[in-house]
Amino acid sequence: MDLTDQQIERYSRHIILEQIGGTGQAKLLDSKVLIVGAGGLGSPAGLYLAAAGVGTIGIIDADTVDMTNLQRQIIHHTADLNVNKVDSARAKMEAINPDVTVKTYHTWAKADNIREIIRDYDFVIDGTDNFPAKFLINDACYFERKAFSHAGILRFDGQLITILPGETTCYRCIFETPPPANAVPSCSQAGVLGVLAGVIGSLQATEAVKYVLGIGELLTGVLLTYNALTMQFRRINLNRNPNCVLCGDSPKITELKDEEQPVCDLKKD
């Protein structure tokens, strides 16, 4: 792929980096990254990947923009209230960079649609907010052998890990099944510092860019945790688990299934 003069100017700060150059930028323009969830994590990831010139960005979400989203989901603006999140996200990514083709999937990721969607992409970013979706993405990426970035945030804490399915530690190596519904923090106990989503979602975008370019060391086999109050990052080495129900020596999960959705009941708090 030859870069136009305008592209050489737009991406000049990438191109002057020895590890990227014109060749790397062309790779980015040729790459496809899927973001599952146009929320707190997906917002910064989508904006940075669009700015970076990732040529095709897919985004899945069935939700519409709600007032409570605006504190952290920076891809959506006040004027987007009640708009489909995927349409709102697409408009911002296209506005940043006309080089980017945005594909929208106005649906929830489920066992019956996710494999087909991720198959087309080079890398997947898990920006979902619930455990069934996180397990579904982990399992689907395993069956499709698709590299992805897993992340979670809660209150002032965030964590992420990059997973090369079948090669490096997966989400089920660490957590066998979703937590019981009654253990999931109730709505009043939950909440999240808005900017935390920006920190963790941006780290996920960094991993996507590195993966596409084949540079640096990916965050595989290591869970990176971050606490915004203490400003401490920790790297926790996590080996593959031979007893993993998905990628272990004698797997119990042999086909993709939806996990049950723990319900948060607002009235109970």
Binding site: D129, F131, L154, F175, G191, L196, C264
Partner: peptide
């Protein structure tokens, strides 16, 4: 020993 915590997406509704 490492305690590894489940973390969702911080929206708090799921």
């Amino acid at each position: 020993v490492e305690f590894l915590y489940f973390m969702g997406g911080g929206g708090g509704l799921n």
